[in-house]
């Protein structure tokens, strides 16, 4: 179904460790040992040899328990932390575009690549938004960095994005502290979409929201995905969210990818003992 030429993100051998490592690390960490920290040298292997390919218009889910390395993987792809080893290749979804290795990019190019091509929505709105600026100012940040220099046109674009994300446009100049949790997530989504990104990263977007608000935010994400054929990487510990949005899923444990495949397959016929435990413990 997916054309080989239409991949957007290709990750190979991505590794992040905190510490120097020792010869006994490999035999004492990982899902078989139930820890990502080496008991001998205390090195934390946050993400080990991760590899996957993401295709145009696809939603890939990443599930795992706390400390399994899924957020580390997300931060690596968002270029906020540098990997110890591995490569991240990005390719524009257009025809005859050349792939770029994000890991070897210099800081200047990386900053502007991240602004133009990536959109991220964090679990906690304070991470993605500056609570001292107005809602409109927050959404405008990416546009301003991309050299939009006309206040009138910037505000037109913000209004457009606020309508698209079901926010009341008349509250454009309000303080974000007066917004509810679900609204703040929508502000983050509006900000992420402002630059028409090639890849949208969603880090636990619905955790911490009550169920009805969760459903509305998920509906919004699904609508954006449908309308714009947006490529998304979705990190969640909630199998319900994964089941609704992701076509393919990666299961992580103790820094390792233990299982990957179609979401239906993973939920209906889990192979790895950890995945079996995860599926059976879902409500």
């Amino acid at each position: 179904m997916t054309d080989v030429a239409s991949w957007v993100l290709n990750v190979t051998g991505l590794t992040k460790r905190y510490g120097l490592g020792c010869p006994r690390c490999a035999e004492s960490t990982g899902p078989d040992h139930g820890s990502s920290q080496c008991p001998f040298c205390q090195t934390v292997h946050a993400c080990v040899n991760a590899g996957f390919t993401l295709y145009q218009g696809e939603v890939l889910g990443i599930v795992g328990e706390s400390g399994s390395g899924k957020s580390t993987l997300m931060q690596l792809i968002n270029l906020t932390i540098n990997p110890t080893a591995g490569e991240i290749w990005y390719r524009e979804p257009t025809q005859d575009s050349t792939a770029m290795n994000l890991v070897t990019m210099d800081g200047f190019t990386r900053r502007h690549f991240r602004n133009d091509r990536l959109g991220i929505v964090h679990q906690r709105p304070e991470l993605g938004l500056n609570m001292r600026f107005s809602v409109g100012g927050n959404v405008a940040e990416k546009l301003l960095l991309a050299n939009w220099r006309h206040i009138g046109r910037i505000r037109e674009r913000i209004t457009e994005l606020m309508i698209q994300t079901e926010l009341p446009p008349e509250r454009i100049d309000d303080d974000p502290n007066t917004f509810s949790g679900g609204m703040l997530q929508r502000v983050q989504i509006a900000k992420a979409l402002s630059s028409n990104p090639g890849l949208l990263l969603l880090d636990e977007v619905t955790s911490g929201l009550d169920l009805s608000v969760q459903a509305r935010v998920l509906d919004l994400i699904r609508r954006i995905q449908w309308e714009q054929k947006m490529t998304m990487l979705l990190v969640s510990h909630d199998l319900g969210v994964i089941k609704q949005l992701a076509r393919r899923t990666i299961v992580m444990k103790n820094g390792f990818i233990v299982e990957s495949g179609l979401t239906d397959q993973i939920l209906e016929d889990p192979q790895h003992p950890y995945t079996q435990l995860l599926v059976s413990s879902a409500l």
Partner: peptide, 21 residues
């Protein structure tokens, strides 16, 4: 310093935007 190194002046532009608003 990192922001200067990466020419990451988006936030300063937001400051200008906010002052106009």
């Amino acid at each position: 310093t990192v922001m200067h190194g990466e020419a990451d002046y988006g936030r300063m532009w937001v400051y200008m935007y906010e002052s106009v608003i």
